[in-house]
Amino acid sequence: MAGEKYILHTEHLERHFQVGIEVVKALKGVTFSVEPGEFLTIMGSSGSGKTTLLNILGCLDKPTGGTYLLDGVEISGLSRNDLARLRNHKIGFVFQSYNLLPRTTALENVELPLLYNAEISTHERKERAIKALEAVKLGDRLDHTPNQLSGGQQQRVAIARALVNEPVMILADEATGNLDSRTSYEIMALFQELNQVDKKTIVFVTHEPDIAAFSSRTVFLRDGKVLKDTFNNDIKSAREALDNLPPADDY
């Protein structure tokens, strides 16, 4: 099958919305594929259809036309419950606004995806959550609640949550949008490390060009179509960018 060597494979993806009597075509035939280990950024201005694409890639929405294969699975025929299972097993979401449960410890937040996986025991759940938090260097913040953590730390908890179910792909939606540039670089450095060291496949939706510079490939969307699909030969290191920032002012 065409999509077998890809983590993600879309062909002529279309998504139409019925708004009153008018049909809005948000996606008008998007075709691209992502191989394992890629760090792909999807860029586009607002209205370009990147949110719609993200929803479909995240199995939160189904395309009106075309095919979408996630890890070899065609999603268009799946039920709501099957999609939920797919999200649980194959995708790790990272959101712009972190979306951590308030008044719930970092550990419990990270455990959350595993709660919905009946095959994982309580003991294993905790073990894996601790491991994921250690991977994002928050091993010493297990019992902190979101309001006891900085924005960057909260986003790292969210990344740990995305990692804990060992997904085939991490799907990040403007994951640095709420952070200052220093913290953004820290988060990007973490993503790069996950990509380069742990060989995680990352799909990162953003509208900031300097974020795209840290990825290995960028898909530009405009008006519901792929405008450009470019490989990045000069991947910038977020770690270096972080080091080059002027030292933080101490007030």
């Binding site: 709501r80 419950n81 939920a84 649980n88 979306n99 959350l112 919905y116 179910n165």
Partner: peptide, 11 residues
């Protein structure tokens, strides 16, 4: 929404 996105089913 979050719970659903990380795999909670309707039930």
């Amino acid at each position: 929404g979050l719970r659903m996105s990380i795999g909670a089913r309707g039930i």
